[in-house]
Design a binder for these strands. Structure first.
Length: 275
DNA sequence: TTGGTTGTTCGTTC
DNA sequence: TGAACGAACAACCA
């Protein structure tokens, strides 16, 4: 799923690809996938891209923002030219899951594909945008250990569910929380406020490390994630526990990776290494 | 055919 | 007042 590293990968790529481009028109094939008046954005120049938790925001010179949330199956793929008769499936856009196309005046386009249709694009005024991001917790890549510990102390929730709570911490999803807890040697069920300050610090270090690793490998294409070039990420080849149910724990502890359900989500961990 | 899959929101329950 | 939990959303896949 697109989590922080996946969205950050797309942001870094799109910053290079579409900054400064002018929007020519916007084609909407699925009304549910686009909120607001797309005509307001015609003629607007993309001035930059920002990420808030798992949300991507395109700034424009018109005082309007285009916010995007990929949810579970969203893709944002940039194509420079309309290739004719291409055999490359990734170049074969639009496809049946293309919900929106942002066309730029130079002939290139940004394709918003989304199988499950949970994702959205939204035209937002700068002022209204504040309300949206005020609900999000701090970014785990930028938080310091003192503030992180304070957040943990305020909740009795299992640590895994707290880390995934977007109002407490913004951007962490199911994959990277499993990876980070494994690296930190912490059981996902521990109540957050029971972690010692030392464990909290260790967890934050490992969480940041897991997220950096995800960005380094261009995100995880465990399911249908593709980056802005339409390419798969490689992080799934470097998972330590996620999706490895029944396989040997990579710490060589002799135990096997277990899978349980927490908050309705698959949770992978080693019961021997994670106490 | 049915159940599993998942990020976020929403509604119900305690 | 609010924490906690489950369902809903949609479509695919095994």
């Amino acid at each position: 799923m697109p989590e922080l590293p996946e969205v950050e990968t797309i942001r870094l790529q799109l910053s290079q690809l579409i900054s400064g481009l002018k929007i020519k028109d916007i084609q909407i094939f699925q009304r549910k996938s686009f909120t607001g008046d797309e005509k307001l954005l015609i003629g607007a120049n993309i001035s930059g891209l920002r990420r808030f938790a798992k949300m991507l925001v395109m700034d424009t010179d018109k005082g309007l923002l285009l916010a995007v949330h990929l949810k579970m199956t969203g893709q944002l793929i940039y194509k420079k030219f309309k290739l004719q008769n291409s055999n490359n499936k990734k170049e074969n856009l639009p496809n049946k899951y293309t919900r929106v196309i942002i066309n730029f005046t130079d002939g290139s386009g940004l394709f918003f594909n989304d199988v499950r249709r949970f994702g959205w694009m939204r035209v937002v005024k700068k002022r209204d945008f504040e309300e949206i991001i005020n609900k999000l917790g701090p970014d785990p890549t930028r938080i310091n250990s003192g503030d992180f510990y304070k957040i943990l102390k305020l909740s009795k929730k299992p640590i895994k569910l707290l880390l995934m709570d977007q109002e407490k911490l913004g951007g962490v999803g199911n994959i990277y929380v499993c990876e980070a807890l494994f690296e930190a040697g912490l059981n996902p069920k521990i109540p957050a406020n029971q972690l010692t300050e030392e464990a909290s610090e260790r967890l934050l270090v490992r969480l940041k490390k897991s997220l950096r690793k995800g960005i380094k490998w261009g995100g995880a294409s465990d399911n249908n994630y593709l980056d802005a070039y339409g390419e798969q990420g490689e992080m799934q080849e470097h998972f330590l526990v996620y999706g490895r149910e029944g396989e040997k724990c990579l710490n060589n502890c002799g135990s096997m990776v277990k899978k349980i359900r927490m908050g309705g989500r698959g949770t992978y961990f080693c019961s021997k290494c994670q106490k």
